[in-house]
Design a protein around this nucleic acid. Sequence first.
DNA 1: CGAGAGCCGTATCATCGTGTACGGTTATTG
DNA 2: CAATAACCGTACACGATGATACGGCTCTCG
Lengths: 199, 199
Amino acid sequence: MEGGRRAERERAIEAAAYEILAERGYGGTSMLLVAQRARASNETMYRWYGDKNGLFAAMVRRNAQAAGERLEAALGSSRGAGAILRDVAPVLLGLVLGERAVALNRAAAADPTGDLGRIIAEGGRRRIVPLIAELLRRERPDIDGEALAELFIALVIGDQQIRRIVGDLGPPDDAAIARRVAWALDAFARLSGIGGDRP
Amino acid sequence: MEGGRRAERERAIEAAAYEILAERGYGGTSMLLVAQRARASNETMYRWYGDKNGLFAAMVRRNAQAAGERLEAALGSSRGAGAILRDVAPVLLGLVLGERAVALNRAAAADPTGDLGRIIAEGGRRRIVPLIAELLRRERPDIDGEALAELFIALVIGDQQIRRIVGDLGPPDDAAIARRVAWALDAFARLSGIGGDRP
DNA sequence: CGAGAGCCGTATCATCGTGTACGGTTATTG
DNA sequence: CAATAACCGTACACGATGATACGGCTCTCG
């Protein structure tokens, strides 16, 4: 099988898994159901992914990769820290509250091995927060960059993820994201001196 | 069966469920396993709780009740807002990051019906945040009380819950809670003018 | 082209969980 | 005390799941 075709098949399998995950939760998602929906055979599923956790680990990795690249691109911009944060915050919030992240965090919460959670953390927060800290350290070398990054995360994300995952909060639309970001960045600017009214 | 004895049995059943939940996750926790560990019969479990979700709903309600009462007691104090927040914050943080809350949030994340999440939200955040908002409104009638309460939650709790639930963060000890609370209340005081250096 | 690898659709097996039922024991009530 | 309700321990039927296996088809490679 050609590499391109296998990649395509994997995408279809993972898309089917996301659908079933949304409908039935992690416990209700079986390899056989995913195989059937993706028109793959059970044997192929086990050959390619090893087991159910292997399938979800692959999905988590792929999602983290895509999200990480997107955030790194925004963080690597050559503009000022305030402008970068204005770009990064809505992207970050949209990603962590998006359907895929929510589905995968639910899977991780349900995974008794803890594997999925580790992969999520490695590819997510642990990858991105140090970059934010570095950016802030360059802007304000007199303040603890890590504490500033933690403040940024607390204000932008807060407890929205857990509320989203248990169903207390629905998916935010662009306007809601913009409002939260504006509020968070205003508070952040007042505390850190970074960003604020500058255009 | 006498009311007191049944309450006692229910406690034992729920304690057994928490143990198995911690060992095996929600999907790996069965009514039969809980029954065996609590020396209750399968028939009693189904008669008392209806089904597995019924058992967990009862546990969520009981935990929310206990936590809510504890926070309300701290919030109902006659001291000033700053002093109350200093009391409430570590209690709140200890509760939301404690083993029981984590276990139940994991169950809610794994529950495809969404029932557990609704019960958690009703008995938790939706009950407590308006009380915090009211307290802050009394202290600073010139500022939006709800926005202040959201700021308080963001700073004190942030994204620690989701990190706790996916296993990225272990249970915090008292010193870690105190550090987080001090940091959060300092930032809160600087933004709101409530609390801060006053003893 | 033929051989072999890979994959699909289906079948099989062992295990587990859900939920009900039953005989016997214990607790409660009149 | 006797009758009844409640509960325990065990059994049972059923369906679903995880994982393996197989025949046949399709694709790839030499």
